[in-house]
Simulated assay, not measured.
Amino acid sequence: MTQHHVIRIWDLPTRLFHWTLAAATIALVATAKLGGNAMLWHERLGYLMLALLVFRLAWGLVGGRWSRFASFLYSPARLLRYVRGGGQPHVDDVGHSPLGALSVFALLIVLVLQVASGLASDDEIAFTGPLARFLSGEWVGRATWYHADVGQYLIYGLVGLHLLAIAFYALVRRRRILRPMITGDKVLAEPVPASRDDGRMRALALVLVALAALLAWWVSRLDAGGGF
């Protein structure tokens, strides 16, 4: 009989981040398309996204074992082996797979660029980013162009690929990759070290969330000459 092991892979802060990021992304797209008064909420959600990304970058260094960037930094050779079907499922598919890791890093980079360009953009109608006053008109124009005409479409593409990957794993490989991001646990054929997900880790996450929120608030105050 095959023995199965239930292992905590995704800690609670990572799971909350994941679903909050998904909701914030959808809301940002919706408010951008609605325009008008909805742009006020688009701006607020942009600061929320900034705080989320700052938290995730920090959590990628000190969070649960499988949420740390070090756990899914794969070499090009290992990625190629995985794509060709020559990987090690009991290792590669515990946390983020090599392909999944590539998707995570790509999405984080694109979201960081989208938030940064938004903070530096000026639509000359309803919104001027708090960083715009520190930049030349040329750079503000570039940021505005990227934010409106490039970045959002990169996000659409990456989100679409993400959804296709979920469908592929569910329908072709018969693997449920959404449930572990809800419960935190994976059922594995071989034991692996679990992610730490106790009270101290969650308290650390709350401290990081507070610091990230404080940073986002400070950035929001720059357009008014505010600060600490």
Rank of each mutant, 00 (worst) to 15 (best):
T2Y: 13
Q3C: 14
I7W: 13
I9H: 03
I9P: 08
I9K: 05
D11F: 05
D11Q: 11
R15I: 08
L16W: 02
L16S: 00
L21I: 14
L21N: 12
A22I: 10
A22G: 12
A24F: 00
I26E: 00
I26K: 00
A27Y: 13
A32K: 01
A32S: 09
L34V: 13
L34G: 11
G36M: 06
N37T: 08
N37F: 14
W41V: 08
R44Q: 15
R44I: 00
R44D: 14
G46F: 02
L48S: 10
L48I: 09
L50D: 03
L50F: 02
A51M: 03
A51N: 03
L52R: 01
R56C: 01
R56Y: 00
L57N: 01
A58P: 01
W59I: 06
W59M: 05
G60D: 07
G63W: 06
W66R: 04
R68N: 07
R68P: 01
S75G: 05
P76T: 02
P76R: 13
L79E: 11
L80Y: 12
L80I: 11
R81L: 15
R81F: 06
V83R: 09
R84I: 15
R84L: 15
G85V: 05
P89W: 02
D92E: 04
D92L: 08
G95D: 01
G95L: 02
H96W: 04
S97I: 02
L99V: 15
V104N: 13
L111V: 06
L113V: 15
V115I: 09
V115S: 05
A116N: 08
E124W: 11
T128M: 11
G129S: 11
P130S: 01
R133V: 15
R133C: 15
L135V: 10
S136M: 06
S136E: 09
G141A: 10
G141I: 14
R142Y: 07
R142G: 15
A143M: 09
T144N: 13
H147C: 05
A148V: 08
A148K: 10
D149L: 10
V150G: 05
G151R: 03
L154I: 03
I155D: 08
V159C: 14
G160F: 10
L163Y: 01
L164W: 07
A165G: 12
A165S: 13
A165F: 02
I166V: 11
A167N: 12
F168T: 05
L171S: 07
R173M: 07
R175H: 09
R176S: 13
R176C: 10
R179M: 14
P180T: 07
G184W: 08
P193L: 07
S195W: 00
R196K: 12
D197W: 03
G199M: 02
R200Y: 14
M201C: 07
R202D: 00
L204I: 08
L204M: 11
L206R: 00
L206D: 01
L206Y: 06
L208I: 03
V209G: 00
L211V: 14
L211N: 12
L211I: 12
A216K: 09
W218G: 11
W218E: 14
L222R: 03
L222A: 01
D223S: 15
D223A: 14
A224W: 08
G226S: 01
G227I: 05
G227M: 09
F228V: 10
F228Y: 10
